[in-house]
Design a protein around this nucleic acid. Structure first.
Length: 209
DNA sequence: ATCCGGATCGCCT
DNA sequence: GGCGATCCGGATG
Protein backbone atom coordinates (compact mmCIF):
# COMPACT_ATOMS: atom_id res chain seq x y z
CA UNK A 1 0.00 0.00 0.00
CA UNK A 2 1.01 3.54 0.44
CA UNK A 3 4.20 4.13 2.36
CA UNK A 4 4.10 5.62 5.82
CA UNK A 5 4.55 9.33 6.20
CA UNK A 6 8.08 10.39 5.43
CA UNK A 7 10.11 12.28 8.00
CA UNK A 8 9.47 15.99 7.54
CA UNK A 9 12.98 17.27 7.96
CA UNK A 10 14.14 17.16 4.37
CA UNK A 11 11.19 18.25 2.40
CA UNK A 12 12.12 21.04 0.12
CA UNK A 13 15.84 21.65 0.38
CA UNK A 14 17.58 18.56 -0.83
CA UNK A 15 15.10 17.95 -3.63
CA UNK A 16 15.76 21.25 -5.29
CA UNK A 17 18.09 20.66 -8.26
CA UNK A 18 21.58 22.09 -7.74
CA UNK A 19 21.92 25.60 -9.13
CA UNK A 20 18.28 26.58 -8.70
CA UNK A 21 17.13 28.87 -5.87
CA UNK A 22 15.87 27.28 -2.70
CA UNK A 23 12.11 27.86 -2.53
CA UNK A 24 10.67 30.23 0.05
CA UNK A 25 9.06 27.31 1.84
CA UNK A 26 12.50 25.89 2.57
CA UNK A 27 12.96 28.62 5.17
CA UNK A 28 9.56 28.19 6.81
CA UNK A 29 10.74 25.42 9.15
CA UNK A 30 12.57 24.90 12.42
CA UNK A 31 15.60 27.21 12.37
CA UNK A 32 18.10 24.56 13.49
CA UNK A 33 16.99 22.29 10.62
CA UNK A 34 17.30 25.11 8.10
CA UNK A 35 20.73 25.94 9.53
CA UNK A 36 21.83 22.33 9.09
CA UNK A 37 20.41 22.03 5.57
CA UNK A 38 21.95 25.28 4.37
CA UNK A 39 25.32 23.53 4.53
CA UNK A 40 26.30 22.76 0.93
CA UNK A 41 24.00 25.41 -0.55
CA UNK A 42 25.42 28.32 -2.55
CA UNK A 43 25.27 31.97 -1.51
CA UNK A 44 25.55 34.32 -4.50
CA UNK A 45 25.66 38.10 -4.85
CA UNK A 46 25.32 40.03 -8.11
CA UNK A 47 26.56 43.63 -8.25
CA UNK A 48 27.56 45.94 -11.11
CA UNK A 49 31.11 44.65 -10.63
CA UNK A 50 30.07 41.07 -11.31
CA UNK A 51 28.97 37.83 -9.67
CA UNK A 52 30.57 36.25 -6.60
CA UNK A 53 29.43 33.08 -4.89
CA UNK A 54 30.51 30.45 -2.40
CA UNK A 55 29.47 27.13 -0.92
CA UNK A 56 28.09 27.49 2.60
CA UNK A 57 30.23 25.50 5.04
CA UNK A 58 29.34 27.04 8.43
CA UNK A 59 26.08 28.41 9.86
CA UNK A 60 24.48 29.33 13.17
CA UNK A 61 20.81 29.23 14.18
CA UNK A 62 19.25 32.14 16.08
CA UNK A 63 15.98 30.95 17.49
CA UNK A 64 13.84 34.03 18.11
CA UNK A 65 12.76 36.17 21.10
CA UNK A 66 13.39 33.40 23.61
CA UNK A 67 16.98 32.99 22.45
CA UNK A 68 18.91 35.63 24.43
CA UNK A 69 21.67 35.74 21.80
CA UNK A 70 19.18 36.54 19.02
CA UNK A 71 18.51 40.15 18.00
CA UNK A 72 14.81 39.32 18.24
CA UNK A 73 15.22 39.21 22.02
CA UNK A 74 15.16 43.04 21.92
CA UNK A 75 11.77 42.99 20.24
CA UNK A 76 10.50 44.45 16.99
CA UNK A 77 12.45 47.60 16.11
CA UNK A 78 13.54 49.37 12.93
CA UNK A 79 16.66 47.25 12.94
CA UNK A 80 14.92 43.88 13.41
CA UNK A 81 12.04 44.61 11.05
CA UNK A 82 13.07 42.02 8.47
CA UNK A 83 14.10 39.49 11.10
CA UNK A 84 10.43 39.43 12.09
CA UNK A 85 9.27 39.42 8.48
CA UNK A 86 8.53 36.57 6.10
CA UNK A 87 10.90 33.60 5.75
CA UNK A 88 13.23 33.54 2.78
CA UNK A 89 14.45 37.14 2.93
CA UNK A 90 17.86 38.51 3.90
CA UNK A 91 18.49 40.01 7.33
CA UNK A 92 21.72 42.02 6.99
CA UNK A 93 22.99 43.97 9.98
CA UNK A 94 25.98 46.16 10.83
CA UNK A 95 28.29 45.14 13.66
CA UNK A 96 31.28 46.54 15.53
CA UNK A 97 31.18 49.77 13.58
CA UNK A 98 32.55 48.30 10.35
CA UNK A 99 31.24 44.92 9.28
CA UNK A 100 28.10 43.44 7.80
CA UNK A 101 26.65 40.05 8.69
CA UNK A 102 24.28 38.06 6.48
CA UNK A 103 21.34 35.98 7.73
CA UNK A 104 18.48 34.09 6.10
CA UNK A 105 15.16 34.69 7.88
CA UNK A 106 13.30 31.55 8.92
CA UNK A 107 9.83 30.61 10.19
CA UNK A 108 6.58 32.48 9.99
CA UNK A 109 6.01 36.23 10.04
CA UNK A 110 6.43 37.58 13.55
CA UNK A 111 8.63 34.76 14.82
CA UNK A 112 11.98 36.55 14.62
CA UNK A 113 14.45 33.77 13.87
CA UNK A 114 17.22 33.43 11.30
CA UNK A 115 20.36 31.60 10.23
CA UNK A 116 23.70 33.41 10.25
CA UNK A 117 26.08 32.34 7.48
CA UNK A 118 29.56 32.23 9.04
CA UNK A 119 31.78 30.81 6.29
CA UNK A 120 31.91 30.04 2.58
CA UNK A 121 34.16 28.16 0.21
CA UNK A 122 34.66 30.43 -2.84
CA UNK A 123 33.10 29.25 -6.12
CA UNK A 124 32.54 31.94 -8.77
CA UNK A 125 34.13 35.38 -8.82
CA UNK A 126 37.21 34.68 -6.75
CA UNK A 127 39.11 37.36 -8.70
CA UNK A 128 36.43 39.86 -7.72
CA UNK A 129 36.74 38.76 -4.09
CA UNK A 130 40.49 39.39 -4.30
CA UNK A 131 39.87 42.87 -5.68
CA UNK A 132 37.54 43.62 -2.80
CA UNK A 133 39.98 42.24 -0.22
CA UNK A 134 43.38 43.28 -1.58
CA UNK A 135 45.21 42.72 1.70
CA UNK A 136 44.25 39.06 2.01
CA UNK A 137 47.14 36.71 1.32
CA UNK A 138 45.87 33.23 2.09
CA UNK A 139 42.84 32.02 0.12
CA UNK A 140 41.06 30.79 3.25
CA UNK A 141 40.97 34.31 4.69
CA UNK A 142 38.76 35.48 1.83
CA UNK A 143 35.56 34.03 3.30
CA UNK A 144 36.25 32.27 6.64
CA UNK A 145 34.10 34.53 8.81
CA UNK A 146 30.71 36.27 8.71
CA UNK A 147 32.15 39.75 8.15
CA UNK A 148 34.74 38.52 5.66
CA UNK A 149 32.28 36.75 3.42
CA UNK A 150 30.13 39.86 3.19
CA UNK A 151 33.18 41.89 2.17
CA UNK A 152 34.13 39.26 -0.44
CA UNK A 153 30.65 38.97 -1.95
CA UNK A 154 29.78 42.66 -1.69
CA UNK A 155 26.86 42.13 0.67
CA UNK A 156 25.91 45.39 2.42
CA UNK A 157 22.98 46.98 4.22
CA UNK A 158 21.23 47.76 0.94
CA UNK A 159 20.60 44.01 0.61
CA UNK A 160 18.66 43.87 3.88
CA UNK A 161 15.10 42.65 3.27
CA UNK A 162 15.61 41.20 -0.22
CA UNK A 163 14.09 37.89 -1.27
CA UNK A 164 16.66 35.11 -1.43
CA UNK A 165 15.21 33.39 -4.49
CA UNK A 166 15.88 36.35 -6.75
CA UNK A 167 18.88 38.66 -7.42
CA UNK A 168 20.88 40.43 -6.24
CA UNK A 169 21.46 38.05 -3.30
CA UNK A 170 20.32 34.46 -3.79
CA UNK A 171 20.78 31.07 -2.15
CA UNK A 172 20.93 28.17 -4.61
CA UNK A 173 20.67 24.47 -3.91
CA UNK A 174 23.97 22.59 -3.90
CA UNK A 175 25.12 19.05 -3.28
CA UNK A 176 23.73 17.90 0.09
CA UNK A 177 26.19 17.36 2.94
CA UNK A 178 25.89 13.94 4.65
CA UNK A 179 25.13 13.79 8.36
CA UNK A 180 28.47 12.09 8.94
CA UNK A 181 30.20 15.23 7.67
CA UNK A 182 28.32 17.70 9.88
CA UNK A 183 29.68 18.88 13.23
CA UNK A 184 27.47 20.65 15.79
CA UNK A 185 28.91 22.93 18.50
CA UNK A 186 27.95 25.97 20.57
CA UNK A 187 27.83 29.31 18.76
CA UNK A 188 30.84 31.62 18.46
CA UNK A 189 31.36 35.11 19.82
CA UNK A 190 28.30 35.36 22.05
CA UNK A 191 27.93 35.59 25.80
CA UNK A 192 24.24 34.75 26.28
CA UNK A 193 23.13 31.14 25.74
CA UNK A 194 26.74 30.39 24.96
CA UNK A 195 26.27 26.65 25.42
CA UNK A 196 23.36 26.02 23.07
CA UNK A 197 24.47 23.63 20.27
CA UNK A 198 23.34 25.69 17.28
CA UNK A 199 26.49 26.03 15.18
CA UNK A 200 26.81 23.70 12.21
CA UNK A 201 29.82 23.19 9.98
CA UNK A 202 31.29 20.82 7.41
CA UNK A 203 33.82 18.60 9.15
CA UNK A 204 37.38 19.30 8.05
CA UNK A 205 36.55 22.11 5.67
CA UNK A 206 39.44 24.63 5.71
CA UNK A 207 37.12 27.63 5.39
CA UNK A 208 35.37 27.03 8.72
CA UNK A 209 36.04 30.00 11.03
C1' DA B 1 21.92 63.84 25.49
C1' DT B 2 24.86 60.32 26.82
C1' DC B 3 26.52 55.68 27.74
C1' DC B 4 27.60 50.93 26.76
C1' DG B 5 28.01 46.58 24.51
C1' DG B 6 28.12 44.06 20.36
C1' DA B 7 26.41 37.20 16.03
C1' DT B 8 34.12 40.88 13.94
C1' DC B 9 38.47 41.53 11.88
C1' DG B 10 43.31 42.39 11.47
C1' DC B 11 47.49 43.41 13.46
C1' DC B 12 50.38 43.06 17.55
C1' DT B 13 53.18 40.33 20.86
C1' DG C 1 45.98 35.31 22.93
C1' DG C 2 45.08 40.39 23.33
C1' DC C 3 43.42 44.69 21.86
C1' DG C 4 42.04 48.74 19.02
C1' DA C 5 39.12 50.31 15.29
C1' DT C 6 34.62 52.54 14.64
C1' DC C 7 29.48 52.99 14.59
C1' DC C 8 24.78 51.79 15.66
C1' DG C 9 20.90 50.22 18.46
C1' DG C 10 18.85 50.17 22.72
C1' DA C 11 18.72 51.65 27.48
C1' DT C 12 18.95 55.15 30.83
C1' DG C 13 18.67 60.11 32.64
Amino acid sequence: MTGSAAPRARRSGTRTPPGTPLPRKFYDRDTAIVSRELLGAVLECRTPEGVASGRIVETEAYMGPHDPACHAAAGLTARTKHLFGPPGVAYVYFIYGMYWCFNAVTREVGHGSAVLVRALEPLDGEDLMRERRPKVKRRVDLTNGPGKLCLALGIVGAHNGGWLDEPPVRILAGEPVADADVVVTPRIGITQAADWPLRFFVDGNPFVS
